[in-house]
Every structure is written in C-alpha cells, then in structure tokens.
Amino acid sequence: MLNIVRPKIEIRRVSKAYASDHGPVLALRDTDLAVGEGEFVSIVGPSGCGKSTLLYIVGGFLDADGDVIIDEKAIMGPGTDRGIVFQEYALFPWLTVEDNIGYGLDRQHVSATDRKKIIDRLIGVIGLTGFEKRYPRELSGGMKQRVAIARTLACDPAILLLDEPFGALDAQTREIMQDELLRIWLETQKTVLLVTHDVTEAVYLSNRICIMSARPGQIIEQFTVDLDRTRPREELVLSPDFNTIRNKVWLSVRRQALAAGQQNVDPS
C-alpha cells in the first residue's frame, strides 16, 4: 500500500444538502477522505449514495459544507489542477476532435507550435489519428470518451476526477478503455479519483477502494488492493487474489444496497 505521507487531496467533514420539493435532502454527511499523491482511489456505492456529488465537490463545481484541500490549500471553485471526465463525454459538439483537445490549451494561450505538438501526441496516445477534423457526433461512444480523456490530459492536471467514465460503453469497449486508462496512469502517475458502480472495474484499476453508504453518503469501509498491474488482464482477473478482493468489495457494496432497499449493484 502507498503511504499517505502528504495527502494530495483531503476531504474534511464534507456535507451537502439538496433542496427538493419535499424539503432538503442530505446527500453527504461528514464525509472524510484522504488521497495520496499518485494514488488511484475508487469510490463505489449504491446508486444515489452521493458518490458523484462528492466528486463534483472535489472538482469545485458544487458548494458544500466542510473543506476540500488540495496540496494543503482549500479549493475555491474549479481549477485546471483537477481534470474531469464525465460519463456523458461532455465534448463541445461545435468543436472538432483536435479543437476539443486543444480547448484547454487555447484558454492558456499556448503557442500554436506547442499546441499542435501536444494535440498530435495525444491523438496518437488515444489512437484516433485521421479523425482530427471530425465532430463529436460523427464518433462512437468509445471514441468520444477517448477524446474526453485526451482533452483533460492536454492541460496536464495533477489530479484526474472520473465520474463513471465508462458507464455508457459496451462491455468490450469498456475493458479496452480501462486498459488504456491503466496504461496512462502507470505512465503519468497522476492522482486519480474514480467514481463507479462496477466492482470489477474498481478492483482492476485502483490502489484503494472506498465503499460509500446509502444516502446520506459516508465512506464506511475501505479496501486496499495490492495487485501487480503489469500482469496481463486475463491472468489478473482470473487470479485467486483478484477474486478474493473482488468478492469482499462486492459483499460490502451489496450490504449497502440492501440497506438502501435497492438491489441495483452489478454483481459481475
């Protein structure tokens, strides 16, 4: 396990209430979490437990009670140090693939030559050479999500926030994308916070898995995943180590889902 010497992200007693027609609904209550530099942490929990809300608070998109501290400074809204990828891709539909990837660079007034260099490299990384001038509507779901990831990486954020990034993809594409993400993480050693409801995905990708309770959400259990990520997927997924931890995580999530009166946790 990684030692959390200096937490990159510290979530301190964060609470969030939403207004609804039936009065305020508490989505999160006194949630605490620390993520070390270079760590890959997944948050798993029953649907509606507030795990995405927590991610949006870390992103600075939602106000909340409590503090989110990045590099020992409390955040004040969104910033380029935290890149985000959403389930629904959120590409700018009016920009081509290369302009989507270059969007963050344009805001920072990066020179044309550097811009082109970065875009060319990232298009190579995501394997979309030849698609530079396409609009998002001309791409498949998997291609869109690759562009979204490249767009985020272009700004070179220290932290990646991933909100069920592969939830809308078919099973085969999802596995390919997970392998690509793993490769990018191993290469760049970015700090990653991933929200997912897919237990296998969480075990396959993360150093640590945090289980969230049903609403109001709190992190109630954590699992450290100590697997050799350089092993090929088949070997890893079929190994007894992998399945032991996967079963533990799955049982924990299931308990939460049952407690919430829901049975919508994917047991795969």
Partner: peptide, 18 residues
C-alpha cells in the same frame, strides 16, 4: 446548456467572462 459542458469548460480554465 448541459451542466457538464459548463463544468468541463471551467475545469479546462475557462473564466466566467469567457
């Protein structure tokens, strides 16, 4: 305008003026 577009833009360094 989808909220995720605005949030993505903000996380990519778009100011309120832009």
């Amino acid at each position: 305008t989808p909220k995720v577009l605005v949030w993505s833009a903000q996380a990519l360094g778009t100011t309120d003026r832009e």
